[in-house]
Structure formats: structure tokens, C-alpha cells
Amino acid sequence: MNLHMPPYSKAPATKMTPKILIQNMNFFYGATQALFDVNLEVPAQQITAFIGPSGCGKSTLLRCLNRLNDLVDGSRLEGQILLDGQDIYRADVDVTDLRTRVGIVFQKVNPFPKTIYQNVAYGPRLQKVNRRATLDDIVEKSLQGAGLWEEVKDRLHASALSLSGGQQQRLCIARALAVNPNVLLMDEPCSALDPISTAKIEELLHTLKEQLTVVIVTHNMQQAARVSDYTGFFLLGELIEYDNTKKIFTNPGDQRTEDYVTGRFG
């Protein structure tokens, strides 16, 4: 394998269709280039993890997948990102529609200052789902999907801010699930959480994978090793290696990957 610049890093031995296809992508914050010629294939209904040291561009890439970087003044993208074969950066793409298909959970736990119910119903209501029964149904299913239902079903109308940190993060997952996405992006979802909450979320990821494609950015290599099927390693804006998780952690093809996963730098 070409160590320096793999022209096309595809997940090997995948029998699945790629959900997301990233081709020759460069990304700039104003004059600063944040990502360099990224080529990557995210398989459907698998968990893909992006790892790498701080500032390596993994979160930037994640945010490109639902065009949240559009909000940053002066940001610019070259190349293509295809979701189900469609370029999401084409001018006629409805960004709001894209974002309902590609949900995201942030590192910083960010429930809205509303009730638990209103948080989950926020997304559906934006799409003019206003029937109470339908909303109740969506809220219950989403909370169940996020594994939170049993804990909050008696206090749906309490403030979301009254939940613990781990519960708040699962609420954010439920909120993302409520608009029925087929890709869920997770940007270091457990970095602010205690081990028990982390374990719950990791457990959750396994069930989520049955319905949707998950892309997770993590600092925690054990987490990546535990939960993901595929792992991409980023360094200074470049995708160094992308492969089966097992391979990345046991037999990496690149020296830098090995140094990183064995903890020689970080």
C-alpha cells in the first residue's frame, strides 16, 4: 500500500454499498487549508470511527458531511461528497433536508432549554408534524432508540437541563433520531461523560447500527477499537490510513498509525 498518499482508500473487503463517498476533498477555513485531498468510503449500517490527534481535521470532516461548516464565515470545500450517490454540495441541494437525513450529536452536550419532550419533538415540529399523537409516538420511539425512555417517561415535561450529563447526551441522540436520519454523525459524544454513561452510549451504538450508518469521531482509541467496524486515522489534515478497525489496531499499514495507536504520540 502506498504509504504517503493512497489515491483511494476504500474499506477493504466490504460487501456493503458505500453510504458516503468522499472524493478528492480539500477544505479551507479562509486561507488555511484544514483537509488535504481526502478520499474515503463510509459503508452503510456500519460504525466508522475517525481518530487522530487534536487539530487533525477529523471533526471538520464530520461537519462537512452535513454541511454544518457552511456556517463558518469564509469556509470553502473542493472535491465531492456523495451521499447515496448524490453530491451534497451541489447548489440545488436543500441543506435543511440534508441535515434531517444526516443527524449529528456534538461533543458539547447541548439540549435546548426546553422540556425533554420539546427537545425530542423539536425536529419533527420543524417539519410541520404537529399532531399530538404522532409526536407522542415519535418522542417515545426516539427516546427508546436512545435508551432513555425508561428513565424519563414519567417526567417528559421536566426541563431537559434537569437530566444528568449522560442522560442529556442520550437525549441529544434521541433528538437526532426523531427526524429519522439514515446517517448519524457523532463528534466525540462521550468526551464529557463518566465511564458508566460512556458505556451506555457505546452499547447504544451497537443497536443503532442496525438501522443507520454511524460515523463517530473520538479521541479515545479504546472506544474506537471497541465500537467501530472501520477506522480512519487522520494527521495534520490528511487521511493517513483507513481500514478495518481490527487491522488498524493490530496491524496498521503506516508507521504513524502504529505510533499513534500504541500511544507514542497523541
Binding site: L71, T96, G103, I104, F106, N110, P113, Y122, L126, V179
Partner: peptide
């Protein structure tokens, strides 16, 4: 992050 949270849910 609240704004991002809302926009990420497909809000205009």
C-alpha cells in the same frame, strides 16, 4: 452549540 444543534436538526 445551541444554534448548531438546531440547524443540525434541519432547522432553517
Amino acid at each position: 452549540h445551541l444554534l448548531s444543534g438546531s440547524l443540525a436538526l434541519g432547522a432553517t
